[in-house]
Simulated scan of single mutants.
Amino acid sequence: MALGALVLSGAPAPAQDTGEQAPPAAEVRAEIAEAMDAVADYSAEERDAALERAREGLDRLDAAIARREQAMRESWADMSDAARDTARERLADLRAARNRLGERYGALEAGTRSAWGELKSGFADAWDAVSDAWAASETDSTGDAAAD
């Protein structure tokens, strides 16, 4: 089975289950990207707002990764050994990139106003790595993008 089952379902996290149809994975990803990219637009004086926006994006990202992990567990028996290895690697890469982004968030939170520009740059670079890992995890073992 291709890694299509690993695509973010866009379903709300269990605690947020409203019974409504979940947005497509691409929409979820775009919303998270918008929140993360917005941090670059905040000045040092708007640090608290930037941190709040980034925290919201991190929370959504964590929920999306959890959904991806759940989808992998649910489809594990139907996956070939090669697909399992690929899925495991790509999920590990995504998780590692998310951890680096969390570290950069911590630096933003603890940093001084005078270092704000440099800290934002580091955060943006870490977000780019997450975005790249996310995109890679949405392709199957043949390199084709997985369907929503």
Rank of each mutant, 00 (worst) to 15 (best):
S114C: 09
M79Y: 04
R60I: 01
R73H: 11
E118L: 10
P24I: 07
L58S: 03
R84V: 06
Q70A: 12
E74G: 10
E69R: 14
L94K: 02
D17V: 11
A49P: 02
A77Y: 09
D78Y: 12
E69D: 14
M79Q: 06
M79H: 03
A35C: 13
R68W: 04
A54K: 01
F123P: 00
A49T: 13
T86L: 10
R60L: 07
R53T: 12
N99T: 15
S9I: 03
E56D: 13
A115L: 08
A77D: 12
R53W: 03
A66Y: 06
L119W: 00
R60M: 07
D93L: 10
G102A: 05
A97E: 00
R60K: 14
A22M: 06
G102C: 06
R68V: 07
A25Y: 02
D41Y: 10
D85Q: 15
L51S: 03
A49C: 06
G19R: 08
R60Y: 03
K120L: 00
P23I: 08
G19C: 06
S114A: 15
A15I: 11
A15S: 14
G122I: 00
V28T: 07
A26I: 13
L101T: 01
L119M: 06
S75W: 04
S80P: 03
A54T: 04
L119A: 01
M72K: 08
A54L: 03
S114T: 15
D81Y: 12
E89C: 09
L51V: 04
T112V: 09
D17Q: 14
G10T: 04
S75Q: 09
A107L: 09
A26P: 06
E56A: 13
Y42E: 02
E89Q: 14
E109D: 13
G122S: 07
L108Y: 01
K120I: 00
T18F: 08
V39Q: 01
S121L: 09
Q21K: 15
A71Q: 08
E89H: 12
T86D: 11
R60S: 07
G57S: 05
R95L: 07
A63K: 07
L51Q: 02
D93T: 12
E27D: 14
S43E: 08
L58V: 06
R55K: 14
D93C: 08
G10R: 05
R95M: 05
A107N: 08
A25T: 02
R73N: 11
L108S: 00
Y42I: 04
